[in-house]
């Protein structure tokens, strides 16, 4: 399974990979991007099976990234990993095609639960 992690923090990307392992999600090939713009390029280049993105990022934020991904015709499961808790943010993301949310700080339990429906399909 190919997973794209999009976050402007290298620390968070590293922690996310570790959390995947802690959640028992092994055998994953990770790709990384530092913002939405890089994320769009990574989606085109690697055709990931799953995308996890931060919300607040420079250059292109997570919502803009999601819109680009969906506008390009990709139906890849897309989740936000974010500190944003607002109902309005989540509603906007759902409208644009987000599949799930995982709140930072990410625990193995929360990540495993959020990804379970998509891991089963892969």
């Amino acid at each position: 399974m190919k997973v794209l992690l999009v976050d402007d923090s290298r620390t968070i990307r590293t922690m996310l990979k570790r959390t995947f392992r802690q959640a028992g999600l092994d055998g994953i090939e990770f790709f990384e991007a530092g913002n939405g713009k890089e994320g769009v390029a990574a989606v085109d280049a690697h055709k990931p099976d799953l995308i996890l993105s931060d919300w607040n990022m420079p250059e292109m934020n997570g919502l803009e990234f999601l819109k680009e991904v969906r506008a390009s015709g990709y139906k890849t499961p897309f989740g936000f990993v974010t500190t944003e808790e607002g109902v309005q943010h989540k509603a906007a993301a759902r409208t644009c095609g987000a599949d799930f949310f995982v709140e930072k700080p990410v625990t193995a339990e929360a990540l495993g639960a959020a990804l379970a429906p998509f891991m089963a399909k892969s």
Partner: peptide, 20 residues
């Protein structure tokens, strides 16, 4: 650089306390 990146994420997470 790595410590500064981690500090950014700590501050980012602290915005939750401000937003609440």
């Amino acid at each position: 650089e790595s410590m500064l990146d981690a500090l950014s994420e700590i501050f980012n997470n602290l915005t939750k306390a401000l937003n609440r």
